[in-house]
Computed example of a mutant assay.
Amino acid sequence: MLKIWGRTNSINVQKVLWCCGELDLEYDRNDAGNEFGVTGSPSYRALNPNGLVSTIEEGDFYFWESNVVVRYLAHKDEKGRLCPFDIHARFDAERWMDWQATVFWPALRPLFIQLIRTPLEHRDTAVIARAEQLSFAAVQILDTHLAGRRFLTGGDFTVGNIPAAVAVHRWYELETHHPELPNVRRWYEILRQRRPFRQAVMIPLS
């Protein structure tokens, strides 16, 4: 059985759990990271030298990097439910996964750390202001792209939506200004109706 290492409040673990839910995959999840420890142990570092989550194991096969894990699980699905068979549609989906990792999350993460994991008296207003600006700029990119599209990659739900939507959920849940972005809001509300999204992603931020 697929084994997943990582705590449920991790954005990178939530991507994997959501993907598993969409594909009806059974798995055994083990808490790891932050208050659970584990990630610094020699046995875990043998699986993932970065000491981060998520990591997956399937028998003697193991690897890490959440977006790659999501790709792997989607590509294994013979029905192609999340990974388009058409090469153009496939890489359209995958570019949005990379965009989340290289543009959106680097902008949003400092805001999340400041507002959720930093005591009020230690928060840096300059860091918050900068992160708010960059995060909104990233979400505006999504809003523009989603005009006339049901999902990021067109009419069908694909892996391309998973990383970006997990990050958008965090953006909406943070106590920060959320200017009206009708296309992102419409897309987000559609995703909120998916049971795997609700189960894996819609939990309190911590």
Rank of each mutant, 00 (worst) to 15 (best):
G80Q: 04
L152I: 15
W96K: 01
A129V: 11
A138D: 02
S66V: 01
I141P: 02
Y72T: 04
R95A: 01
A46M: 10
A89M: 11
P84S: 09
V103I: 14
G59D: 01
A138F: 12
R90W: 11
I162D: 00
I162G: 00
A101E: 04
I56H: 01
L52W: 03
H122A: 12
Q140V: 13
E58P: 01
G154I: 06
Y62V: 08
L108Y: 06
P119S: 10
G59N: 09
Q114H: 05
R90S: 08
Q140I: 11
S66G: 05
F85T: 15
T144G: 12
P49W: 10
T118A: 01
E132F: 10
D156L: 14
G160R: 00
F112G: 00
L142D: 08
G160A: 08
F104M: 12
G80V: 03
M97G: 05
A101F: 07
G59H: 12
F112V: 09
I56S: 00
E121V: 14
F136C: 09
C83W: 03
G148I: 07
V103N: 12
R149Q: 14
A101G: 07
N161E: 13
H122V: 06
H88E: 15
S66F: 01
D156R: 14
E57I: 09
A93T: 00
T102K: 13
P110R: 01
W99S: 06
F112N: 00
G154P: 09
V159S: 04
Q114S: 12
G59I: 07
Q140N: 14
L120P: 04
D98K: 13
R45N: 06
F112I: 05
L142A: 13
T118R: 03
R45P: 04
R71Y: 02
R95V: 06
F61T: 10
R71V: 06
F61R: 14
W105M: 11
S43D: 15
A138Q: 04
C83I: 02
D60F: 13
